[in-house]
Design a protein around this nucleic acid. Structure first.
Lengths: 223, 223
DNA sequence: ATTCAATAGGTAAGTAAGTATCGATACGGA
DNA sequence: TCCGTATCGATACTTACTTACCTATTGAAT
C-alpha cells in the first residue's frame, strides 16, 4: 500500500509531532482556528515544506491559501500518537529523577498515567510521592498482572537497571522507557526507549569544545 | 580536506560514542585490554560495520584479527567529546528535575561541572542542594561574567523557559541544555539542545498504540 | 612454511530524511 | 469577473546515514 496513511512515519517526523501539538494547542487556546505551514514554520524554525510533510502523516488536508484547521490538527495528532487512550505505567526508582517524573502531572494529559512507583530503599517504601504509592520491588509482577500494565519506566541507577528490566520482562511488561545510561538487554519483542543524557551531553560538549578550541576554522567556514 | 579526522562526525555516530565509552570503560575495569568490533557489536546490539565506522572517527586504528586497544579507545573518545577539559555550567530551575541534575555527581567525570543553581522561589534561595548554592535569578549574569560560564541548563517549567533563555543570552551564555518542553527562540549563534520528553513519549506511545490496536497488521507484515 | 579464519579499512551501494520545484486551488483585490 | 498571490499536494532532487562488499593484514593451526 502506497497511501500516505499506510506509509509508516519517519522517526524524526514522529518526534516533531508533539512540538506541533504543543504549538497548535497554544494557538487554539488563543482562539486561532486556521494556520498555514509557513506560519508554523516561522514560529517553530522549520521550513514550511517540512511542516507540510510532517502534517501529511496526520491525514488532515489543508486548503490552499488558507491552511489547516487548528482543531482538526490537534485532534489528529492526539489520535495519531495514541494520546486519547490512556497508557498505564509503573515506575521503578523513586530517586530524584523518579520523583520528578511522578510529579509531572502533565503527562496524564498525554495518555501516560503512572499508577505506582517501586523501590528497594526501605525508607521510601510505604511513602506516597505526588499521590503515588512507593511499593517494594517484589510486588511489581503482581501489580503488572492485576492491572494489565504494559509500560515500565526505569529511573534507577545504572547498576541495577538491567536487573529491573529483567524483572519487567518476566512480569509481562511490553515497553520500557529507560532513563538509566545503559543499553538494556531484553527480548526482541520489547519496545525500549533510551533517554540517554550522556548522548546529549556528548553532542553538546563536543560542539562547545569545537567552538572554544577552533574558532578560526568555524569562522572560515562561515565565509 | 578528506581525511577521516577532517570529516565532521554524523550526529548519530556522535551520540553513540558515549555508549561505546561506557562499555569500554567497563571492559577496562575488568582488565580487558583488546576488543574487536564484532564483540562490541554483539554486546551493544549494533552490526560490527557500524561500530567500526563510528570508532574510525576517534582516529584510533585497530589491528586485523586482534581489534582495538581498549585504553586507547577510551582516551580517544574522551578527548573527542571534550571530556578532558571541564565545562562549567549553571542550572536554572531547582525543582525536582533540577535537583536530580544537581545530584548527578557522575556528570563531573564527563566534563560537566555545575557550579550553581538559580531559582525565583524565595524558599529555595539560599539553600544548598548537593553542595550547590541556590541563588536568586537576577544574580545569574554576574556569575556568568565572573566565572566565564558558557553553558546553561534549563530545568524550569515551560512557561518561564523562554524568559530564562533570554536572560542567559543577555548574560553571555553560549550553549543551552533545555529540559523544558518548548522550542526556545534564541540568536543563531547559540548552541541549543532540547531534551524533549514529550518527543520520546510520542514515539513510545505511538508504538504501543500500534501494537495493541493493530496486532493483525503487524503480524501480517512479519509474514 | 603454508594455509585458514578473523578482523580492520576503504569503497560502493542502498535507504532514509530533508529540501526544492512545479502545477493546482482558493481567496482577495482590481 | 479576472488576476495576482499565498498556499497546498505531489514529485523530483540532494544530502546524510547505514549497510554491504571487497581487499589487505595478522595471528593461529597444520
Amino acid at each position: 500500500m502506497k497511501g500516505i496513511s499506510g506509509l509508516s512515519i519517519p522517526e524524526p517526523s514522529l518526534r516533531r509531532l508533539p512540538q506541533y501539538h504543543h504549538y497548535l494547542a497554544e494557538l487554539q487556546s488563543r482562539g486561532v482556528s486556521l494556520v498555514s505551514c509557513s506560519t508554523i514554520g516561522r514560529d517553530l524554525k522549520y521550513i514550511p515544506v517540512q511542516v507540510r510533510k510532517d502534517l501529511q502523516f496526520t491525514g488532515i488536508i489543508g486548503k490552499p491559501k488558507v491552511g489547516y484547521s487548528v482543531a482538526e490538527l490537534v485532534l489528529a495528532i492526539e489520535a495519531f500518537l495514541g494520546w486519547n487512550s490512556v497508557n498505564e505505567a509503573l515506575l521503578v526508582g523513586a530517586g530524584n529523577l523518579g520523583t520528578a517524573m511522578l510529579g509531572h502531572e502533565r503527562f496524564s494529559r498525554f495518555g501516560l498515567q503512572v499508577v505506582a512507583a517501586f523501590d528497594v530503599d526501605p525508607s521510601k517504601i510505604g511513602q506516597y510521592i505526588y499521590g503515588k504509592a512507593v511499593l517494594p520491588l517484589d510486588e511489581m509482577a503482581d501489580l503488572v498482572q492485576r492491572m494489565n500494565i504494559h509500560l515500565g519506566i526505569i529511573t534507577t541507577p545504572a547498576e541495577v537497571a538491567q536487573t529491573v528490566a529483567d524483572e519487567m520482562v518476566k512480569a509481562g511488561i511490553q515497553a520500557i522507557w529507560n532513563f538509566a545510561p545503559v543499553k538494556l538487554n531484553v527480548p526482541e519483542y520489547m519496545i525500549v526507549h533510551n533517554e540517554d543524557l550522556y548522548s546529549s551531553l556528548a553532542s553538546l560538549s563536543c560542539k562547545l569544545a569545537k567552538r572554544f578550541r577552533a574558532p578560526l576554522q568555524e569562522n572560515l567556514r562561515l565565509n
